[in-house]
Amino acid sequence: MPQREIDDLDRYIIYALQGDARGTSAREIADARGVSSSTVRNRIKRLQDDGIIRGSHLDIDFEAAGYQLYTLILCTAPIPKREQLARQALDVDGVVSVREIMTGDENVHITVVGQDSDDLSRIGRDLSALGFEIVEEELIRNEYTCAYTAFDCDRPVE
């Protein structure tokens, strides 16, 4: 259950920012919805303060940046320590994201970037030292994302 109800303007702001947070201005959103830019900026701040918008992240092509080993590491963590370990994993050099999974044995997915196999081995050792059991490692070729359509107020409801 959300902390507070979000209205159509909030949903549109979230939808627009999901598409291109850096390239979408408050003025563009305001013009599209018939409100002032200050209203949009205030709404964005409130969505951030309420923890609904938690950040805006760059989409990096690691291979083009010279990092060939963009890798997903599937781990098992003891349930009582899962959240704590997931947060600690972010301190390991090379870790770029961590997901806690609610079901299954592979209950933590850690995305890492390494320069070479020695780098990946070090990251694996560091994660194991924290208390993770590494189950599998998968090289990622590409990752694609899109805006969640439920926030698109202009889309017809099915």
Score class of each variant (00 low, 15 high):
S97F: 07
E63S: 01
K45D: 02
E136H: 14
A16L: 12
S37D: 14
S117Y: 00
Y70T: 01
Y12I: 01
Y67P: 00
Y67D: 12
S121N: 07
R11M: 11
A129F: 05
T39Q: 09
S128C: 01
A89H: 12
Q68Y: 08
G34V: 08
S97M: 13
F62N: 03
L17W: 02
D10I: 05
V135R: 02
D91T: 15
L58P: 04
V95F: 14
S117I: 03
D59A: 12
L47R: 07
I123Y: 00
E28P: 10
Q115L: 12
I101V: 11
I44C: 11
A147T: 08
I44G: 10
D116A: 13
L120G: 00
R46H: 14
L17S: 10
R125H: 11
V40Q: 03
S37H: 07
G94H: 03
Y12N: 10
I14R: 00
A147E: 04
A30K: 04
E83R: 06
K81D: 02
R99L: 13
R141E: 14
P80E: 02
L120D: 03
D61S: 07
V40A: 04
V92G: 10
L90A: 12
T24D: 01
D59W: 09
K45H: 07
I53P: 01
D7Y: 12
Q88L: 06
T111H: 07
R33N: 00
I6N: 11
D118K: 04
A147Q: 06
D59K: 14
D8R: 15
D31C: 05
S36V: 06
C146S: 15
C146R: 14
D50N: 09
T103F: 07
S37T: 13
D50L: 09
A77I: 06
N142A: 11
Q88R: 02
I101G: 05
E28Y: 03
A21G: 03
R141C: 05
E100H: 14
R22T: 15
V98G: 05
F132H: 05
D119F: 06
L139C: 02
E63L: 06
R141L: 09
D8P: 09
D8M: 12
A32N: 01
L9W: 11
T71N: 07
T76Y: 02
A26M: 03
P78I: 11
Y70K: 02
A77S: 03
D50I: 03
I101A: 07
G114T: 04
H109C: 03
D118R: 04
R43T: 01
L90Y: 11
L74R: 04
